[in-house]
Amino acid sequence: MAGRALLVFLALTILSSSVLLPKARGNSEGDALNALRRSLTDPDNVLQSWDPNLVNPCTWFHITCNRDNHVTRVDLGNSNLSGHLVPELGKLEHLQYLELYKNNIQGTIPAELGNLKSLISLDLYNNNISGTIPPSLGNLKSLTRLNDNQLHGPIPRVLAGISSLKVV
């Protein structure tokens, strides 16, 4: 009987700690931004405040969040960064502005950026981004700018369906 009471007590303890008590929010946005940080070379230590041990990245320099502590802006233009964009950026579902202009970012635009349904501006100009424009960017119905890079190939027809797109 004592064994059964102990099992019930343990079950209730686990249940109350996993259901009734508030949970700390995951750090998936911080993880995505840290993946970007790891892919970049930062000679001027612009990203020094990006601490992967914080609960969320809203206290980091160059990051703006909404009142629900979701990342809405990454402002790293003209920061002397080099490296590559990472597919993990596609996990920043509330991101509206990705400002990475005037750096030395290379490689291609990850197709996962097409997951950023709230994205208004993708400023990658004056970098060394190459390759083609991923057709998945056609999912970004609020996109207004996608300009000035080393991209080649045809512009995906699906971008013609974005009425807000002003600069390609």
Rank of each mutant, 00 (worst) to 15 (best):
G26I: 00
N27T: 13
N27G: 12
S28M: 07
G30N: 12
G30Q: 02
L33N: 06
L33F: 02
L33E: 01
N34D: 11
L36R: 00
L36M: 01
R38K: 15
S39A: 15
T41D: 09
D42S: 10
P43T: 04
P43C: 00
P43H: 05
N45F: 09
N45R: 14
Q48P: 06
Q48A: 15
W50R: 00
D51N: 14
D51G: 07
D51Q: 09
D51S: 10
P52G: 08
P52C: 06
N53M: 11
V55Q: 15
V55N: 14
P57Q: 09
P57V: 09
C58A: 09
T59I: 10
T59E: 11
F61A: 14
H62D: 01
H62Y: 10
I63M: 01
C65S: 09
C65N: 07
C65W: 02
N66R: 07
H70K: 15
V71Y: 00
T72H: 05
T72A: 03
R73W: 08
V74A: 00
V74M: 01
D75K: 10
L76D: 04
N78A: 13
S79V: 06
S79W: 00
N80F: 06
N80S: 15
N80T: 11
L81Q: 04
L81S: 01
S82A: 14
G83E: 04
G83T: 03
H84V: 14
H84L: 11
L85H: 08
P87K: 10
P87W: 01
P87H: 04
E88V: 06
G90L: 01
G90K: 07
K91A: 14
L92V: 04
L92C: 06
Y97G: 08
L100D: 05
Q106W: 01
Q106P: 00
Q106I: 12
Q106Y: 05
G107V: 09
T108V: 12
T108C: 04
I109W: 02
P110A: 10
A111K: 13
E112W: 00
E112N: 09
L113A: 03
L113M: 07
G114S: 10
G114K: 10
N115W: 05
N115I: 05
N115K: 15
K117N: 11
K117D: 11
K117V: 11
L119A: 04
L119G: 00
I120P: 00
S121E: 13
S121H: 12
L122E: 02
L122M: 08
L124N: 08
L124M: 11
N126K: 14
N128S: 14
G131A: 05
I133P: 00
P134Q: 06
P134D: 05
S136Q: 14
S136F: 07
S136H: 08
N139I: 09
N139D: 09
N139M: 07
L140Y: 03
L140F: 02
L140H: 08
K141A: 09
L143V: 06
T144P: 04
L146R: 04
N147Y: 14
N147C: 08
D148Q: 15
L151V: 07
H152C: 11
H152V: 13
G153Q: 07
G153K: 10
P154W: 06
I155A: 05
P156C: 10
R157T: 13
R157M: 09
L159K: 10
A160K: 13
G161H: 10
G161C: 02
S163R: 14
